[in-house]
Amino acid sequence: MNTEKLIKNIIDQIKEAQIKLGFAKETTRLYYPVESLNGMLGCRAEDDIQMLAILEGAGLENGELGLLRFSAHKGRIEISVPPEGAVYVHEQVGEPAFLKAMIELFRQDHHCRISDIRNLFESFSKDYVCEKMPEGSDFDEVFYFKDALIDPYYYCVKEEMGHTIYHRFTKEDMANLW
């Protein structure tokens, strides 16, 4: 079981929130679909109860993020990270350059265009992918770097009613969206 992938994802989610909203020494609650956790952990839980048992037996409770707590909620797993986890991420984890630039682009202009996002990706590497999402998808385009060391996430973008939004997904979650 690949628990390192899950811990990294938790840290990445907390860091993204801290870049967007600022640091707060408080409990963070993250909600993961069982399907996402299966992909990250490399397991095959059939439902939230099975996944809860897997997580509770994985030895994840006491690490750098503090005492993690897990609970099942209608097909999803809540992972509760105590305030010391937020402090750890704030003090020990640097701000990823690309993510910081992406957030700044959206902070400056909620009406940014696909071309603005392309320009941002290109400023980090010419070796990126921009693809149209399938018809009926919740998103218009997906962007990602071929070199995951630049940034490992897939950024799905939607333009609607004069606003542009993005959501970040893992490679495994993207496979489920397509």
Rank of each mutant, 00 (worst) to 15 (best):
Val81Lys: 01
Leu120Cys: 04
Ser137Gly: 03
Lys15Cys: 09
Val87His: 06
Tyr88Leu: 04
Leu30Lys: 12
Pro82Cys: 05
Gln18Gly: 14
Val157Pro: 12
Ser36Asp: 08
Ile150Arg: 04
Ile10Gly: 03
Phe121Arg: 01
Pro152Gly: 02
Tyr144Ile: 00
Glu172Cys: 11
Tyr144Asn: 02
Pro33Ala: 15
Gly162Gln: 07
Gly94Asp: 02
Phe121Gln: 02
Ala175Tyr: 14
Phe143Glu: 00
Glu172Trp: 14
Asn38Ile: 00
Arg113Pro: 13
Tyr153Trp: 12
Ile54Trp: 12
Ser80Leu: 13
Ala175Met: 10
Gly57Lys: 02
Glu84Cys: 13
Ile14Cys: 05
Ile11Lys: 03
Lys74Gln: 08
Arg107His: 15
Met40Phe: 06
Ile117Ser: 04
Met40Asp: 10
Glu135Ser: 05
Met40Tyr: 03
Gln13Cys: 08
Asp48Val: 09
Lys74Asn: 06
Asp48Met: 12
Asp127Met: 04
Lys126Asp: 08
Gly162Asp: 06
Glu95Gln: 15
Ala101Leu: 06
Ile114His: 09
Ala148Leu: 00
Leu149Thr: 04
Gly94Arg: 07
Glu172Ala: 11
Asp173His: 08
Asn2Cys: 10
Gln50Ser: 15
Asp12Ala: 05
Glu104Asp: 13
Lys158Ile: 08
Lys20Gln: 08
Asn119Leu: 05
Ser71Met: 11
Gly42Arg: 01
Phe70Leu: 04
Ser36Pro: 03
Asp147Glu: 03
Thr27Glu: 14
Ala86Pro: 08
Lys126Thr: 12
Gly66Arg: 10
Arg76Cys: 07
Ala86Thr: 07
Tyr32Asn: 13
His73Val: 14
Asn9Ile: 02
Glu64Met: 14
Gly59Leu: 00
Asp173Ser: 10
Gln92His: 07
Gly63His: 01
Ile165Ser: 09
Glu159Thr: 12
Cys130Glu: 09
Gln92Met: 05
Leu68Thr: 12
Tyr88Ala: 06
Lys171Phe: 13
Asp173Leu: 04
Leu30Gly: 01
Phe23Ala: 10
Tyr155Cys: 07
Tyr31Lys: 14
Lys20Pro: 03
Tyr155Val: 10
Lys146Gln: 05
Phe121His: 00
Cys112Met: 06
Gly66Phe: 07
Pro96Ala: 02
Ala17Asn: 13
Asp173Lys: 10
Glu141Ile: 03
Gly162Met: 05
Ile10Phe: 00
Lys8Val: 08
Arg69Val: 15
Ile19Ser: 12
Thr3Val: 05
Asp138Ser: 09
Ala24Cys: 05
Asp147Lys: 04
Trp178Cys: 13
Leu99Met: 15
Ala24Asn: 09
Val157Thr: 06
Tyr88His: 04
Asn62Cys: 12
Tyr128Glu: 02
Ser71Thr: 11
Ala53Trp: 14
Ser137Cys: 00
Glu122Gln: 08
Gly57Leu: 00
Ala53Asp: 15
Arg69Gly: 11
Gly22Trp: 15
Glu159Lys: 14
Pro33Phe: 12
Gly59Cys: 02
Tyr155Ile: 11
Asp140Asn: 03
Pro152Arg: 06
Val129Tyr: 00
Glu56Tyr: 05
Cys43Val: 15
Ser80Tyr: 12
Cys112Val: 02
Gly42Asp: 03
Ile11Pro: 06
